[in-house]
Design a protein around this nucleic acid. Structure first.
Lengths: 194, 194
DNA sequence: GTTTACTAACTAACTGGTTAGTTCATAATA
DNA sequence: TATTATGAACTAACCAGTTAGTTAGTAAAC
């Protein structure tokens, strides 16, 4: 069966599994080839080298996320809940991003930075419009939300690895995260600050 | 100059730098030996093998943290601030912990789990005593605090790597983190929930 | 106090398995 | 037949771990 596209697809899938499990340095090209049931050479023909393959895999998955994922500045608890659900369903992506950050490959961050800046701008607008509180800067809010929404991923040293009791309590976690985000981004008018 | 203790010390120091930079898989024993200005064989004499060396380095640093670091359940914003300051001053340790979590070496977590459970128990007591709010479970609170306090470390994919503007604003960050933790752990009596 | 015997600290060179990347012959397809 | 996909075998470099031997310190024997 000759099918270049299908082979590429299988390689990308296997590479995702391998890289998310072992990182760039720990990943083995032979293992990827074996898992994809293709010859190692195909990997070098289709994807230059190991690093290029990693970049392709990461970029592919991130693009998918940015296309599918709506940011809703007026409903930040809901956004946090969706990030939480998505990441719980795709722990591999979170691992990939963490490996990437640790191995400090500075290239290819433009896409993410742009998306980040766009969100910050939207948050600022939402603050001006009074939809969300102004106690925290947009940048602080965004990072806080992302960090809370992904705190119970297996990549977090302070997450489930240290607190195994949390696994399985998905619904309680999502609910608590939403409340926490609400506390940070909540309308300041309705409470008595100062 | 012959000095076993000094040599061990130099190896541990070099290993810390190497492992935090490259992780276990990416670290090179030759590089550690060169950095420590000792012969590679000394590493194998003093520390069995590469993994053992990693474990020793991590354990050493964590023990130091657990001994020096007071947990203050009645002043959680202050605790968060101290975690923040400590981690900002020791980014290598955060990297080491993240590598460790990603490479899922399950051994040797007992020390950390114990410390974690002790903190959770203290938080529960503080809640009973009415020192802190009861809207979030102790486990949720603790993970949230740690995650917020370490969100602007270079290891976080949603931190400074994506938001370079945050670097340098240490004081603003610390202050915002303290306020955020206050929001999550604040006394519920003074606000009108429900 | 100086020679001898012993040991801990250290070194350089090596080994064998692993791994990223290549080559080339063959099979399928158009 | 020309082109493209594929896979087995190969290569060169790398790297964790080892070995065999050297040097420096120390203490007892004379």
């Amino acid at each position: 069966m000759r099918n270049a596209e299908a082979t590429k697809e299988k390689i990308l899938e296997a590479a995702m599994a391998e890289f998310s499990a072992y990182g760039i340095a720990g990943a083995r090209v032979d293992r990827i080839a074996k898992m994809a049931k293709c010859n190692k050479n195909m990997i070098y023909i289709y994807f230059e080298n190991k690093e290029q393959l990693f970049s392709t895999v990461l970029e592919m998955h991130l693009t998918r996320v940015y296309e599918e994922f709506a940011f809703t500045p007026e409903d930040l608890p809901g956004y946090a809940a969706r990030v939480f659900d998505f990441m719980m369903a795709n722990p591999d992506l979170m691992r990939l991003m963490t490996w990437f950050t640790l191995e400090q490959k500075t290239e290819q961050l433009d896409q993410r930075k742009e998306a980040h800046n766009r969100k910050i701008a939207e948050l600022a607008k939402a603050q001006e419009a009074g939809h969300i509180g102004t106690d925290f800067s947009p940048a602080f809010l965004l990072t806080s939300i992302m960090v809370l929404a992904t705190a119970w991923m297996p990549t977090n040293p302070f997450g489930p690895s240290i607190d195994p009791a949390s696994s399985g309590k998905t619904d309680e976690l999502r609910e608590a995260i939403m409340r926490a985000v609400g506390r940070l981004a909540g309308e300041p008018a309705s409470t008595e600050n100062r």
